[in-house]
Design a protein around this nucleic acid. Sequence first.
DNA 1: TATTTATATTGCAATATTACGATAATAAAA
DNA 2: TTTTATTATCGTAATATTGCAATATAAATA
Lengths: 110, 110
Amino acid sequence: MGITKTTYFTDEQNELAILTKAMGHPARIAIIQHLIKVNSCICGDIVNELPLAQPTVSQHLKELKNAGLIKGNFEGNAICYCLDENGFNKIKHFFQHINSYLENQKNQCC
Amino acid sequence: MGITKTTYFTDEQNELAILTKAMGHPARIAIIQHLIKVNSCICGDIVNELPLAQPTVSQHLKELKNAGLIKGNFEGNAICYCLDENGFNKIKHFFQHINSYLENQKNQCC
DNA sequence: TATTTATATTGCAATATTACGATAATAAAA
DNA sequence: TTTTATTATCGTAATATTGCAATATAAATA
């Protein structure tokens, strides 16, 4: 069927899935890494940085933006992108939860 | 074309993408949350916990296991699952990097 | 206004993912 | 050894994702 049963899960579960799914492609990881490196840059710089065509990069940027992981401002006729802390803060708490669990627990199966 | 150009990206980018992609489904987030809650449990418990059929759950468990986010031990004829710190430690550093960047930086576009 | 520059959208082909019924495999118990 | 319980695999249908050429849109500039 191929359709995710989102209604059967909590809002939190769906939101975390959307955020992590948005990160789940090497091109989108590369975009995040590049934005950290240069702080902010226009879309064209990312196109030059990645081994993908402009429409493909535009599509990846859209997915990151929809998830709330990046944001873009108009800079003349170009669009300047940078990280959006909103999205990352939402994931942050989940990972903190996981990490504190793994540290305090001898994590072993049955 | 639908095929990700993994060879064009670094090993680190591909690895982070595999890990985050594996988390990118509400059922797999729910599995991780449940394992944190009960520490470890057999596959059948997860099937009862989720609104999905047994083969579907089995498939999600396989993906989490392949990514290195959970591990399973034989417990009689059942299999006991728990979190695998290996996978989570790999993501941990990436998020620490992102978070320290976002904290130290007035994150604004151009 | 026409042109250039920068980005988004459309349309499509190839591939991947999601979900589940049916069935196989495995190990304990009767 | 047969049965039962537990999990994995196979096969398949429906949907989603990836990638790009072609094209559209929007803003600056000539």
